[in-house]
Design a protein around this nucleic acid. Structure first.
Lengths: 207, 207
DNA sequence: ACATATCCATACATACATGAATGTAAAAGG
DNA sequence: CCTTTTACATTCATGTATGTATGGATATGT
């Protein structure tokens, strides 16, 4: 095979990552060989070893295409001067919308349900990192809400944070086991709205 | 090696399952060979293939030692004539106590974080089954609570069910990523009590 | 006491997956 | 226009896991 132009080379790199997503999703990470990925992209292992050091490196590159820090999602909504609780709601909403995009759905399903640690990759640590970011962000908003007197009296803002974080996490894991069963966006928004309504001061219903 | 007595044979079977738990937990299911498990138990693959058909069969046997249906946990508490909300609390409590036992912790950590599907095993389906049992049970209790007027007015019992189920699931997954970081029993009970307090009618605080 | 089934170790055949080495044709660069 | 990289394909050596076949010693049933 002949040498490709830089643009073409980048295209084959992306093709390999696309193929990795599909084959990893279908067969699990451990059970798929680099040969399978290469052939699924219409290439050979030579291409894989050219663009990536090994399987772990390929995996990392695949993950790098779908990072989504909670704070960035909030920023995208342009909710800079909304109330803390409304900001949480918008961040939640934006997160759920992302999750319904096929790429995010596939890659996260791979990370959660279709790989164990291998090489120097520890999916568990990656999950912990993502969850930690989210928890910190939520904690900040609920602390603000507490200072502004927006939370139900007697409710520790830290408890509120952990409740909402657990709900998001639980919803996420349950949905990811069978993403076609229902829309995580619709069901998720119902749950957040209900929880925010329970958490907020009585006059302040979820909005 | 010579033939062993029936009791001895059963002991080596248990030893193999114990070894499987430890090695699976340390290295992940896909990355551990049957040879590793056998040697960790001071045996050889011959013993493994005698007691189990293959890796999937061994895995299934390991799981069978730690089944814990939510309803059975509730029954253990002897909460037969308590209020639905109190019953949920007791079931929750019993579940969390179980999770702090090393064997349950290890095996569930393996199921959730250290295996992908292989052979005819689909960990995802097993998780779905377990979650489904729990959800059904919770749904029943909250329906009862609603009929008895124990829920906050205007709160759909199905929403309440899903909120509590998501909290349990989220808590479980977060804790399992790093079980030594905190006690799931203590933190979990704080969260359930807080949520039950939010969900219940005002005069009926979490107890 | 005898035959047999049991419990496990050992040996072997097969099958992949990896990574490195090598080949190669075209694009970049001067 | 010539050289040097680049972007892959191909080949090979090695390691490792699996499943099965076989052997051997002893419990166990009768």
């Amino acid at each position: 095979m002949a040498r490709r132009t830089k643009a073409e080379a980048e295209a084959t790199r992306e093709a390999l990552l696309d193929a990795a997503e599909e084959v990893f999703f279908d067969n699990g990470v451990a059970r798929t060989s680099l040969e399978q990925i290469a052939r699924h992209a219409g290439l050979t292992r030579g291409a894989v070893y050219w663009h990536f050091k090994n399987k772990a490196d390929l995996f990392r590159a695949m993950l790098d295409r779908v990072r989504m820090p909670f704070e960035e999602l909030v920023a995208e909504t342009g909710a800079s001067h909304a109330s803390p609780l409304e900001t949480v709601r918008l961040g939640f909403q934006q997160s759920l919308l992302r999750l319904e995009q096929p790429r995010y759905r596939r890659v996260l399903a791979i990370l959660i349900h279709r790989c164990e640690f291998f090489g120097d990759i520890d999916p568990c640590a990656i999950q912990t990192e993502m969850a930690g970011e989210c928890l910190d962000a939520l904690g900040g908003y609920f602390a603000d809400a507490h200072r502004l007197g927006l939370l139900k009296e007697g409710l520790d803002p830290e408890i509120a944070t952990r409740l909402v974080q657990a709900i998001l996490s639980g919803l996420f894991h349950d949905w990811l086991r069978d993403p076609d069963a229902y829309s995580i966006y619709e069901r998720g928004m119902v749950l957040v709205d209900a929880q925010l309504s329970l958490i907020g001061r009585d006059q302040a219903k979820a909005a």
